[in-house]
Amino acid sequence: MKYRISITLNLPRQKVIELFDNPDNMKHWQKGFISFEHVSGTPGQEGAVSNLKYKMGKRSMELVETILKRDLPEEFHGTYDTKGVHNIQENYFKEIDEHTTEWISVTEFQFSGLMMKAMGFFMPGAFKKQSFKFMEAFKNFAENGISVAEKS
């Protein structure tokens, strides 16, 4: 399953990249985000591997991120793997003008295992909807400083 979505941010591209490229900001736009742990390679660079942990309701999830391409401010691509799911994520940042940036996301999910294949087949809209929720949350954080992080 592959799809493309985009969102326009009312910020200069350099500011968008500054916020997007900082793992400390992930908690502010990825609901359920718990931690980011660098595993190998040069942090933030092509080939780097990291573990990302999330809690969604009572369910915990761990993803392994591998950076495939880093050509910022133009693009950032990576893979995200967890049991039964291989996600290829391509992010493009297009400068519309000096105050506006378009973030284009091309996402591909590859499923293994009967349960995940069934989810991908019967609920493709749920994956696209979740991706767009992350983009909207990033926009809200970047433009307005509003975080989705749970208050403790």
Score class of each variant (00 low, 15 high):
Met56Glu: 12
Phe33Leu: 00
Ser60Leu: 03
Gln14Thr: 11
Lys55Phe: 03
Gly32Tyr: 04
Arg13Gln: 09
His28Ala: 04
Phe36Thr: 06
Val16Ile: 12
Lys58Gln: 12
Asn25Arg: 03
Pro43Tyr: 05
Asp21His: 14
Lys31Phe: 04
Ser35Ala: 15
Ile67Val: 15
Ile67Pro: 11
Gly57Met: 09
Pro12Arg: 08
Asp21Pro: 07
Lys31Glu: 13
Gly57Ser: 08
Glu46Asn: 11
Leu63Gln: 10
Lys31Met: 05
Phe36Trp: 15
Asp21Arg: 08
Gln14Ala: 13
Val39Ser: 03
Ala48Gln: 06
Met56Gln: 13
Gly47His: 13
Arg13Ile: 06
Asn51Gln: 12
Lys69Trp: 03
Pro43Asn: 04
Tyr54Phe: 15
Pro23Arg: 02
Gln45Ala: 15
Ser60Trp: 00
Ser35Trp: 00
Lys53Arg: 15
Lys58Val: 10
Pro23Gln: 06
Arg13Glu: 01
Asp21Gly: 12
Leu72Ser: 06
Gln14Met: 05
Asn25His: 14
Phe33Ile: 00
Lys15Asp: 14
Asp71Ile: 05
Val49Leu: 10
Leu52Glu: 15
Trp29Arg: 02
Met56Arg: 11
Ser40Ile: 10
Lys55Pro: 07
Ser50Lys: 02
Asn22Leu: 08
Val49His: 04
Leu52Gln: 12
Glu46Leu: 06
Met61Glu: 09
Ser40Pro: 07
Tyr54Gly: 07
Phe33Asn: 00
Gln45Pro: 03
Glu65Thr: 05
Lys69Leu: 15
Glu62Gln: 14
Glu74Asn: 14
Asp24Trp: 03
Ile17Asn: 09
Glu46Pro: 07
Leu52Tyr: 13
Gln45Ser: 14
Arg13Pro: 01
Glu18Ala: 04
Pro12Ser: 07
Arg70Phe: 04
Asn22His: 10
Trp29Met: 04
Ser60Pro: 01
Leu68Ala: 09
Leu63His: 06
Glu37Val: 09
Glu75Trp: 00
Met26Asp: 07
Met61Arg: 02
Glu62Ala: 13
Lys58Pro: 10
Arg70Met: 10
Glu46Trp: 09
Ile34Cys: 05
Lys53Met: 06
Val64Asn: 05
Val49Glu: 06
Tyr54Thr: 04
Glu65Arg: 06
Val64Met: 14
Lys15Trp: 01
Pro73Arg: 08
Leu52Cys: 13
Arg70Lys: 15
Asp71Trp: 02
Val16His: 06
Glu65Asp: 14
Lys31Ala: 10
Val49Cys: 11
Pro43Phe: 05
Ala48Pro: 06
Met26Gly: 03
Gly57Arg: 10
Val16Ala: 13
Ser40Trp: 11
Pro12Glu: 13
Pro73Thr: 08
Pro23Val: 00
Phe33Val: 00
Gly44His: 04
Pro23Glu: 03
Lys15Leu: 12
Thr42Leu: 08
Glu75Pro: 01
Leu68Ile: 14
Glu75Asn: 14
Phe33Asp: 00
Met56Gly: 08
Ser40Phe: 09
Pro23Leu: 02
Val16Pro: 05
Ala48Lys: 08
Phe33Met: 02
Thr42Gly: 04
Ser50His: 01
Met61Asn: 07
Glu18Met: 04
Glu18Ile: 02
Leu68Lys: 13
Phe20Thr: 01
Ile17Ala: 09
His38Lys: 07
Ile17Leu: 14
Arg59Asp: 07
Leu68Gln: 15
Leu72Gly: 05
Gly44Pro: 08
Leu72His: 08
Lys69Arg: 15
Leu19Ala: 08
Asp24Tyr: 06
Lys55Glu: 12
Gly41Thr: 09
Asp21Ala: 15
Glu18Thr: 07
Asn22Tyr: 03
Val39Met: 14
His28Thr: 02
